[in-house]
Design a protein around this nucleic acid. Structure first.
Lengths: 230, 230
DNA sequence: TTGCGTCTGTCGTCTGGACGACAAAGGAAG
DNA sequence: CTTCCTTTGTCGTCCAGACGACAGACGCAA
């Protein structure tokens, strides 16, 4: 069966907020690009000339520190808008990479802006989207500054478990497709600390783990892990 | 001499981006509120029903960790828009407090949204504003995860020195009105580490300090402090 | 089936910086 | 002018967690 243009199921936090007719018009803008797993979508050296709508797959946004250490800011899934935060600059602020085979629509900045002028309700959707992300990053800053590694792991799992972040194609087992290194890169600690913390959470019965995969099985126990001291 | 409605000089990152006629219309929306230094503007328990435009003074946005430790996410100055990130929620995501005597315009959410529908170019200004903030917080996350305290102090001073962040009323000496505790709360470390770092930067000739006040006097030396190991 | 690369799990050493404590200086309020 | 609170500066102790190293398991590609 041929791959559909978009992943089935959830349309993601951006496209799902649009009316069908508005969405169809948006999808005629710009051009589609396919990416293999591991391909770069853009890098921080690139000019910031367009926004992207992810039609299929998964894309991560990350920074590289000087020693090559990677920090993941976001994972995006199908139906999400990304690259929009760079619209006031000439250059990208971070790197984007496809984590799975992906398909994205690239819309030139002026075309997107013109589209928003003609669809002011979409502007409000974008403002709300950016607002939510700002709050999420605010929480991430707070966690990094004041919370131990175990707390940060638990809060990340809680956040992702509550969101629609899942493996594309809708695997039914509700697991989070993340390696220990992914988690470490998202919460700013080292891989061994994540392995230790996930082991402890597994022993308490809060989560299950498989290779490249974590599943929350008892949200109350996970929450309880925040209360007990390390 | 009576206080003017708005601070003189810079109109801040939001209002300065609007045409005079558009700005005048915006300023007729909502209601003005005065705050004494130290007054709360909103807290995280409050319902999120309006956005704020700061007409005069300084407001900080902060979170409180469980042990009462404060983390400052933003300082806003006159002409800035704040409270906009909470528009998708029913409740505020953080706390806001006046750091100096301040005056703010409170605009109910639906009135602001209606204004944007009639002024789509203002929507784009808001999207750009939120985008810049997202990138700034992304940098903060990166710094917290990967940079030592000295590096985080230096980068904060660089960022604020390059912005229009200054004491309201336009003191001419170009200093940054921050205590050591303010800086510690912004970069997520303890006050004594900031004191030590500022002392070192003073000795190298990069900055000058007075009580509640830091001034960058040699940007090259400040930058050089990032290269040398601690 | 085999080989190789990735991922997970464990361990011991080392260090950046949190933190409490204290003293001194500065400034605002009475 | 005095008092008191805030802010700055210094110091010693303690520990969370980074990190390199290594071993074993898993899965993909040939």
């Amino acid at each position: 069966m041929a791959k559909t243009r978009m992943d089935s199921g959830s349309m993601g936090p951006f496209l799902s907020r649009l009316k069908n007719s508005t969405r169809d018009q948006l999808l005629t803008l710009g051009s589609e690009h396919s990416f293999l797993k591991g391909d770069s979508v853009f890098s921080s050296d690139d000019p910031a000339e367009s926004v992207f709508v992810l039609l299929r797959g998964r894309v991560k946004i990350y920074d590289l520190a000087e020693e090559g250490k990677e920090l993941i800011l976001w994972f995006f899934q199908s139906g999400d808008l990304f690259g929009i935060a760079d619209m006031t600059d000439t250059q990208r602020g971070a790197n984007a990479r496809a984590c799975d085979a992906s398909l994205a629509l690239s819309i030139p900045r002026e075309r997107f802006r013109d589209f928003l002028e003609h669809h002011p309700e979409v502007s409000w959707v974008v403002i709300e989207l950016l607002g939510r992300r700002l709050r999420t990053l605010g929480d991430v800053v707070q966690n990094l500054a004041t919370t131990c590694v175990t707390g940060r792991v638990v809060k990340l799992l809680q956040r992702l478990d509550a969101s629609s972040f899942r493996r594309p194609g809708g695997a039914s087992d509700n697991s989070l497709p993340l390696t220990h290194q992914d988690i470490a890169d998202m919460i700013g600690c080292c891989r061994q600390s994540v392995t230790e913390t996930l082991g402890m959470l597994k022993r308490t019965g809060a989560i299950e783990c498989e290779r490249q995969c974590v599943r929350v099985i008892d949200a109350d126990r996970l929450r309880a892990a925040l209360q007990s001291p390390p």
